[in-house]
Write a protein that binds this DNA or RNA. Structure first.
Length: 324
DNA sequence: GCTTTCCTACAGGCCCGGTT
DNA sequence: AACCGGGCCTGTAGGAAAGC
């Protein structure tokens, strides 16, 4: 496998075409990839289409001066991106990314906050489980790389991978899972696009688990399928949680914007402030009508950020000192 | 009838993104 | 990098409606 950590899409395609038919893009700080050239305004559509085509197994087109276009088949790309929450939010909220269904092709997970950790001294190179894991990975890489290593021609043709049929029992599980998801479709909210690909994710995961367990596997059994389905379903729920969490409801967004403004004013000593003055001077995004502003203020009040008090007939607002 | 509140209109300044 | 236009923010003015 050919490893990249910071890549343009062109570099990925070129590596797949010329260097090695199996490429891994591993980045623990995906900001480099997402904020970089590959996701720039003019390249983003291209990147999304390349990644999608690779996932779909359609092959990618490589255009080069001189020899025209060449369709690359038998190529595999493995992508693992880790990112900071702010970067992830931007990605999840990106309209293009959402609409192109790119995220539905990724398995996403948001790691929970870790509590205090204990330091554990351990020499991984002596850990039997780790040694076995490493050995199995090496063997698998060797098995797939073997036919292309010494043969430049084979590299051009791409990987020639065996196809594994599903055991009838595994197939039944697949069909049942497929129909179960179809029946649920309307209730899946933001996970609908992902749900359409979830059965396929399940098979892929089952294959990875099955082949890892037994590299000589000739067909996929129900025990693998069950595990693939369990994982795929977990990823579907995680996907939904993330997609829905990324969408902040409009009233909350407005209230947050107003709070920011109030904090600024408070620092200038310009609080308390009467409701009509918030309407006049406040950020327009909150709304220029008294009704909208009052709604936002009430929301902030309900969450303890602001407090109303009467100055005669006037209703004036001040910030909770702890919200400053 | 006066004051306060609510709403609209408008102008100038500033920032941001797109273009050249 | 410089320029430009649009949108947002801020401040001002004034009129209508509501409250005292």
């Amino acid at each position: 496998m050919f490893l990249l950590s910071d890549a343009t899409t062109e570099a990925i395609v070129s590596a797949l075409a010329d260097d090695w038919p199996s490429v891994g893009l591993f980045a623990s700080e995906a900001g480099v990839f997402l904020g970089g050239h590959a996701m720039s305004e003019e390249k983003r559509l291209y990147t999304i289409s390349v990644l999608s085509r690779l996932w779909d197994g359609q092959g990618v087109e490589r255009a080069r001066q001189g020899d025209g276009k060449r369709l690359l088949l038998g190529r595999r790309l493995s992508v693992h991106l880790g990112m900071q929450p702010e970067v992830a939010r931007d990605l999840l909220e990106d309209r293009l990314v959402r609409n192109q269904g790119l995220l539905a092709r990724f398995l996403t997970a948001w790691a929970p906050q870790v509590g205090p950790r204990r330091y554990v001294e351990e020499d991984l190179t002596r850990n039997p489980a780790y040694i076995a894991y490493q050995g199995r990975l090496d063997a698998l890489l060797e098995a797939t790389a073997g036919n292309v290593r010494d043969d430049p021609e084979a590299r051009v043709r791409g990987l020639e991978l065996p196809s594994l049929p599903l055991h009838p029992a595994a197939k039944r599980l697949y069909v049942a899972f497929f129909e179960y998801l179809e029946a649920q479709k309307t209730g899946l909210g933001e996970a609908r696009a992902f749900a359409a690909k979830t059965p396929e994710h399940a098979v892929r995961l089952a294959l990875v688990l099955g082949l890892f367990e037994d590299p000589s596997l000739t067909r996929l059994g129900p025990e693998h399928m069950e595990r693939g389905i369990a994982l795929a379903e977990w990823y579907m729920l995680e996907h939904r949680r993330l997609m829905e969490g990324a969408r902040v409801p409009e009233p909350l967004r407005r209230a947050a914007r107003l709070l920011e403004w109030l904090r600024e004013r408070a620092r200038e000593g310009a609080l308390p402030i009467a409701t009509p003055d918030v309407v006049r001077y406040g950020p327009r995004a909150v709304g220029r009508t008294t009704q909208a502003v009052r709604e936002a203020l009430r929301l902030l009040e309900a969450h303890g950020y602001v407090r109303a008090h009467r100055e005669g007939r006037r209703e004036a607002w001040e910030l909770n000192p702890r919200a400053l």
